[in-house]
Amino acid sequence: MSMLKKIDPALSWLIGGRRQTASQLLLLPASAWLACFMLAPIALLFVVSFAQRGDYGAISWTFTLKNYARSIDPRYFPVLMRSALYASTTTAVCLALGYPLAYFISFYVDKHKNLLLLLLMLPLWTSCTVEIYAWIIILGREGLINSLLTQIGLIDEPLRLLNRPFAVLIGLIHTYFPFMVLPLYSSLEKLPKAYIEASKDLGGGPWATLWRVTFPLTLPGVFAGCMLTFIPCMGDFLMAEFLGGPSTYLVGNLIQNQFLTAQDWPFGSSLSVLLIAVMMAGLYLQQTLEKKHASW
């Protein structure tokens, strides 16, 4: 204990925060970690995306834009478009299903709000392999739906439910749904309830209030939810790998393939950089939207 007393001034200097050096020093572990294991990998992908593929999958360091040109090659461009289509469909369905749920939790639930939110987040923390496995059991050729339908005599031949776009979309919607609802919920919570009452006092019916007051005011949340759904969806490769087939090959599968099978890391890197660019554009838009809203 006396040891602690001796170094007390030093520790107090660190904790007290009167000196910039102390603050930066305390943040150093976290920031150094993120710099090494988050920023450095992304920066490396950026650099490698301009390099060339050498022999036997090695990287030859000559500057080229070929990797980016390849992404609009007719062989790969449809994959990018398909990913965008799947991600937008997932986002739209999640928004349509999620807004009413977020609205209900925010306006109609009093006591168990936190529990309901936690139950919503729990599937986020379950491993994605388990979730995919569940869908294989349910949709598979000898899965739950098919065996039920065969048993009650509705079908003779098992339906092909897996390995088609429908199955991939179901999986994506199920996985990314919570990402949509949480930001929607928090923007609905922030909404001053007086605005809604004012609208009703001024003769706005429930629908008019929802469409002309509540929804416009929660647009930042809507946008944040869409971003949080769309971006991870764009990078997903597991759903397409297990629930889809060749017709559902997505950009995530393409990236995985470049790194693990085709050994074309520069091309894989350029695809990753494209995804990061989409993310940055989205974040920028979100910030602009939030600023605009704040000035209302």
């Binding site: 943040l27 976290a30 920031s31 993120l34 294991f37 988050m38 450095a40 990998p41 992304i42 490396l44 992908l45 490698v48 971003m227 949080l228 971006i231 991870p232 764009m234 990078g235 997903d236 490769f237 995530g252 990236i255 995985q256 790194f259 890391w265 894989g268 890197s269 990753s272 995804l275 990061i276 993310m279 974040l283």
Partner: peptide, 27 residues
């Protein structure tokens, strides 16, 4: 900057960090 750096891992598609770290570690 610190605040946003601490939320970036939640935004980046996981596959990006996966292949990025794979590249870094091999390098």
């Amino acid at each position: 900057a610190y605040d946003s750096a601490l939320s970036v891992p939640l935004m980046v598609p996981e596959i990006i960090l996966g292949v990025g770290l794979l590249s870094l570690y091999t390098r």
